[in-house]
Design a protein around this nucleic acid. Structure first.
Lengths: 211, 211
DNA sequence: TGGTGTGAATCGATTCACAGCC
DNA sequence: GGCTGTGAATCGATTCACACCA
């Protein structure tokens, strides 16, 4: 299985390669891809080696083929449906941002506890009551959820999601979720990330210095 | 200098300790803190060792003292002002979220290019034109910026921020920023994180399994 | 010559394991 | 007995360095 870090970089490479493709660039060397991805040539070559993609010393890597190859690794051929819970500013921002961005990942349902919001369409995505969550998740064959609710509701919702058979949670709530071990949780803890930024800005850690 | 990972965990510990404090819990053992932080006892003890905080075998760590000690490591005593660029749904969500949350980190200015938004107050934070950015950043002594603009504007704004002498950027734009090496950049790449969640949800990586 | 693919070396972070203490 | 503090061992990720190729 690929490591967390490698999967993250592959996702980034794919996005940068799509940009190159739109500029009619058809081949790229590891040092070129590394430069735009803020990585190193050796890292790029290692990552591509791990997914068994090969280039040629003469022309480097073929952009189209590499995109297709990464698609083959990262995407489910049949696509994956996603739900989002919590339709505040953050939830709306996320729906707007993802609408139409990744063809194989579609946000197909939104949930909120506010009765005012039930039935609303946001970028074509319908809002349901949290009470309907488990049945809608089953109906729509959803296995991944974006959790964008306040901290004090996160664990309650997470428990329901586990009950509904969810396999992955992208968690924006600043709370370490307790879930069964078969569920993958990716935390986005904005407070911590801001505190880290403040700490390193103040203590002069640069993107390059090692100490 | 503390590592990135350690700083992140200290920020999390502090938040969890504040919760314990509000529950009138005054001492905590490394295995207890580890359990609520989803970490390990050895990791907790190592992190606290790195900031030279000591506990006692009999009672564990004193919650109040540890919070104060982490404050001393992470916070600037005089506080740090923060600006945010880009007042869409995401920008508003972030301002609302941080308003009053960390006393030593205050969002004191917002910037947007939309003339409609200039002058608005959002949770007490005034919106300025991007044209005024450099001078306002100097006036308000801001060294940290949250970047929440669309991908195609991010590099342009980042260049201006570097020019303004910013030392840290929390970057929500899905673009690897090119900045001078004295600037610390923390990326929050939601697309990549969602793709990672989808990949591991599909391939059955659990929070515990190692393979 | 200047790139790829990759075993080996290195580096950093985590975990083990145990001495010392209450 | 069960905890802390920490040197040593381990593990995982990155980087080096070089054989091989066009």
């Amino acid at each position: 299985m690929l490591s967390d870090k490698t999967v993250g970089r592959l996702s980034l490479y794919r996005r940068l390669l799509a940009k190159l493709q739109s500029q009619k660039i058809h081949h790229v060397f590891s040092h070129e891809l590394a430069a735009i991805a803020r990585s190193t040539p050796a890292q790029v070559r290692r990552d591509l080696m791990l997914i068994a993609f090969t280039g040629s010393p003469a022309k480097g890597y073929n952009v189209e083929n590499l995109i297709d190859h990464i698609d083959g690794v990262l995407d489910a051929p049949e696509g994956q449906n996603i739900a989002i819970v919590g339709i505040g500013n953050l939830g709306r921002a996320i729906i707007a941002y993802f609408s139409g961005r990744r063809p194989k990942l579609t946000i197909t349902a939104a949930f909120d506890k506010d009765p005012e919001k039930i039935g609303n369409l946001i970028h074509g995505c319908r809002t349901y009551s949290i009470d309907q969550m488990i049945s809608v998740i089953h109906e729509k064959n959803i296995h991944i959820v974006i959790l964008a609710v306040p901290a004090d509701e996160a664990q309650f919702v997470a428990a329901k999601l586990v009950e509904a058979g969810i396999k992955g949670i992208l968690n924006f709530a600043p709370v370490p979720l307790r879930v069964t071990p078969d569920v993958f949780v990716e935390d986005i803890d904005v407070t911590t990330l801001l505190e880290k930024t403040a700490y390193f800005a103040r203590n002069g850690k640069t993107s390059f210095s090692k100490e």
